[in-house]
Nucleic acid binder design. Structure first.
Length: 795
RNA sequence: GCGGAUGUGGCGGAAUUGGCAGACGCGCUAGAUUCAGGUUCUAGUUCUCGCAAGGGAGUGGAGGUUCAAGUCCUCUCAUCCGCACCA
């Protein structure tokens, strides 16, 4: 066949049309000797267009999915849309376009982009979280949690983003700012809202991390840190005029060094203990917005005028109020041990409170009957004593707080609850689900749910007493939507339940979950919680949603910082595919760096991938049906390189996903084949071409498919078996061995692969480049590493 | 402060088990093809001394183990990420 030029605009359009015409093409196959393989990439938010981070994420997952397909697995590779969320509402405020319209049209655009990129996605399982058939199950889960006390309503101080005009969960606050508006400090408001009791599983969630070997240590560490389990004791200090102050400490062994008790300003006793004249000062401390940022705020406090008694030594120590003591952690009160805690030291130094050292070199001093014990032993004994004498107890505290899920916004799942004047909070009966989110709602962005102004939605009869009642107007945090969507993919059209447990059991837990590190805490922690809730509801039989998690690196702009519209360093995947084709785009994202590392987008480097595909394309096509005598040695050498490459790429897939080196290996192979071309007999070419095209298929599906078809082969190349490695064909006849003298490279010898150590030593000592460094010296030792190297130690 | 990473040519990166440092690609240099640009092809490209043959140095830094260290050990520096008055 004459050489064909590589024109991705033609072949990609052609195969895209063919693939699109067959809706079942990417459905899991019936015949799969190696069993099921479920790979999910985190679903995108339909913001308008794909960005390069999506392209990288999905290229990675797709390459893997196609490879697993070729390795004989029954692959499930679905996609969906995290369709609820604030940007849709903000767009509505700006443009007047209804959030649903905006979202639906974005989905259409982005779905087209995903198709053009050639991702092997089973679109028959597509899920959009704003679909009533999806979000009704959010509501259903909400009711189930409510029944079990895992969803509850509480008035509390919450994080409020003045730009989002809504409440944020703790996980969604970064550096005291909203995770979306990273420069706007969150405010504190007292609001009644709904919580999911994630703390119910705190212990399990932290313990589970130890077993999750398929998750990156980085993610597990972040979650461990976030859950923040600490073991300690709660100890009661009697305060003569006000009862009892409970403090939490992890260092009960230092209690003889406690020189004051400090209460958080919000602590219920703070206002009680102080002299009335100090009330304004207390209030100012509570309201000080700077307290959110501990690095810039100086420790501040004042003496209440009251004293508490240390239960261990009966000492009277002053009770202070301190701005650095957190009301939400532990008991909201601490014993200050300035000698052994930096923060206490800072505070006590400032106010002249005594500093008493009670531990030296790990052993206690000045601690009564405990003096001389090691810290560890004292810790145990003192805790036991506190329990025995009833003034304390062993406790474990967590930093993790319950998940606040109420949002005062429109574009989300309505919370299925009704407020009745007579009956209080009444759940919507299961049979009335879904509570539909009304369309045609005016969005103003005010800090109240827009639903409040929709009487058809709000007014409802109380399910209990039938009286007029009002619906809950808040919607759910959209992280609820994404906490379980990978279960829905397993049974996406089920109208009776979120999913059939049997169908979910076929696939879940996910064999491989892939996404960005940004979700290390929020999404991934919520998902782990949700899986446990479903387990306790009897719906699933496992604890963790994903066996293996892969967090890919970010795509950075050419200036080395994350791409963002404001910086103007965004690369548009559409422009890239229009110019070079989807295959080049995919190849580049995999080639530029190992997938777990951040990568810089570099346009000139992209051209290299395009050139490579062109070279391969021309080579394969001009060798289809070629008549050429060639040589036996040429054939041997070509096949050897082919099989060495099979081994290399297979290892990359099975062990470490360093696809940058897999693609480099494909380049090396094509370089070698092109160099050898005139020596390769025509009869050898079909097998060589076939192996090459198959290996290319997971990375560049369009080009590979076109070549497969040009070779006269039927069907889809990604459904063909992966090339079989033949060790005999890959074996070298002879091998070049470096020879070192005293560790420095001095020569090279070429020997038969099966040369013995004695042969190697003899050849090395005889080598003329080596001899000048050895002659006249005493050879003390010769180290021979078979097949690797010879090192002569000469003195 | 706690935790997790990362440091290798002009650049992205490779070296998977302690065994030839710099694969592969970009860029660059020279040449061929072309009216020209682009494309394609050939050769070269860690630094340094040298016309060359050849030598020396070299994986953030300092030590160490070893016949042999980018890789192992100790110390140290720098950068990035996450968490952070969490008692």
């Amino acid at each position: 066949m004459p050489e064909q030029q590589y024109d991705p605009s033609i072949i990609e359009a052609k195969w895209q049309a063919a693939w699109d015409a067959d809706p079942a093409i990417y459905a899991p196959s019936d015949h799969a000797p190696n069993g099921n393989y479920y790979v999910v990439e985190m679903l995108p938010y339909p913001s308008g267009k794909l960005h390069m981070g999506h392209v990288r994420n999905y290229s990675l997952g797709d390459t893997l999915a196609r490879y697993m397909w070729m390795r004989g697995y029954r692959v499930l590779h679905p996609m969906g849309w995290d369709a609820y969320g604030l940007p849709a509402e903000n767009a509505a405020i700006k443009s007047g376009r209804a959030p649903r319209d905006w979202t639906v049209s974005n989905i259409a655009v982005m779905k087209g982009q995903l198709k053009r990129l050639g991702f092997a996605i089973d679109w028959s399982r597509e899920v959009a979280t704003c679909d009533p058939e999806y979000y009704r199950w959010n509501q259903w889960f909400f009711l189930k949690m409510y029944e079990r006390g895992l969803a509850y309503r509480k008035r509390s101080r919450v994080n409020w983003c003045p730009l989002c005009n809504t409440v944020l969960a703790n996980e969604q606050v970064e550096n005291g700012c909203c995770w979306r508006h990273t420069t706007t400090p969150v405010e504190q408001r007292e609001i009644e809202q709904w919580f999911f009791k994630i703390t119910h599983y705190a212990e399990e969630l932290v313990n589970g991390l130890e077993k999750m070997q398929g998750w990156p240590e980085r993610v597990r560490a972040m979650q461990r840190n976030w859950i923040g389990r600490s073991e300690g004791a709660e100890v009661q200090f009697n305060a003569p005029n006000s009862g009892v102050i409970r403090v939490f400490t992890t260092r009960i062994d230092t209690i003889f060094g406690a020189t004051c008790v400090i209460l958080a300003p919000e602590h219920e006793l703070s206002a009680v203990l102080i002299d009335p004249q100090y009330q304004p000062r207390l209030k100012a401390m509570i309201d000080d917005p700077a307290r959110k940022d501990p690095t810039s705020v100086e420790k501040d406090g004042f003496f209440t005028g009251q004293y508490a008694v240390n239960p261990f030594n009966g000492e009277r120590i002053p009770i202070w109020i301190g701005n650095f003591v957190l009301v939400g952690y532990g008991t909201g009160a601490i014993m200050a041990v300035p000698a052994h805690d930096e923060r206490d030291f800072e505070f006590c130094t400032k106010y002249g409170i005594p500093i008493v050292q009670v531990v030296r070199d790990g052993f206690l001093e000045g601690s009564g009957e405990y003096t001389g014990l090691s810290s560890d032993e004292a810790w145990e004994r003192m805790t036991a004593r506190a329990e025995r004498d009833g003034f304390g107890k062993r406790t474990i505290t967590y930093r993790l707080r319950d998940w606040g899920v109420s949002r005062q916004r429109y574009w989300g799942t309505p919370i299925p609850m009704i407020h009745c004047a007579a009956c209080g909070v009444v759940p919507v009966p299961e049979s009335d689900l879904p509570v539909l989110l009304p369309d045609n709602v005016e969005i103003t962005g005010e800090g109240r749910s827009p639903l409040e102004r929709v009487p058809e939605f709000m007014n409802v009869a109380c399910p209990k007493c039938g009286a007029e009642a009002r619906r809950e107007s808040d919607t759910m945090d959209t992280f609820v939507d994404s906490s379980w969507y990978f279960y829905r993919y397993c049974d996406p059209r089920n109208r009776e339940a979120p999913f059939d447990p049997k169908k979910a059991a076929e696939w879940m837990p996910m064999k491989q979950y892939i996404g960005g590190i940004t979700h290390a805490i929020m999404h991934l922690l919520y998902s782990r919680y949700w899986t446990r809730v479903m387990r306790d509801l009897g719906m699933v039989d496992h604890d963790e949603p994903a066996e293996n998690l892969f967090t890919q690196g970010m795509v950075l702009g050419t200036d080395g910082t994350a791409m963002s519209k404001s910086k103007g360093n965004v690369v548009d995947p559409d422009e890239m595919t229009a110019k070079y084709g989807a295959d080049t785009c995919r190849l580049f994202t995999l080639f530029a760096a190992p997938p777990d590392r951040d990568m810089e987008w570099n346009e000139s480097s992209v051209e290299g991938q395009f050139r490579f595909l062109g070279r391969v394309f021309r080579f394969v096509t001009r060798n289809i049906g070629v008549e050429r005598a060639g040589t036996t040695a040429g054939e041997r050498q070509a096949l050897r390189k082919v099989h060495q490459t099979i081994a290399k790429i297979t290892t990359d897939f099975d062990n470490r996903w360093h696809f940058n080196t897999s693609i480099a290996a494909l380049m090396e192979l094509s370089n070698e084949l092109i160099a050898l071309e005139s020596e390769i007999p025509g009869e050898a070419m079909p097998a060589i071409n076939e192996a090459y095209v198959k290996m290319l298929a997971p990375f560049a599906p369009y080009a590979a498919q076109e070549l497969w078809s040009a070779m006269g082969r039927e069907g889809q190349v990604f459904k063909q078996p992966w090339p079989e490695f033949d060790a005999a064909l890959a074996a070298e006849d002879s091998v070049e061995i470096p020879v070192q003298v005293n560790g420095k490279l001095r020569g090279k010898i070429v020997v038969a692969v099966d040369a013995t150590s004695a042969d190697l030593e003899k050849a090395a000592l005889a080598d003329e480049k080596v001899r000048p460094y050895v002659d006249g010296k005493q050879v003390a030792k010769v180290i021979v590493v078979a097949g690797k190297l010879v090192n002569i130690v000469a003195r």
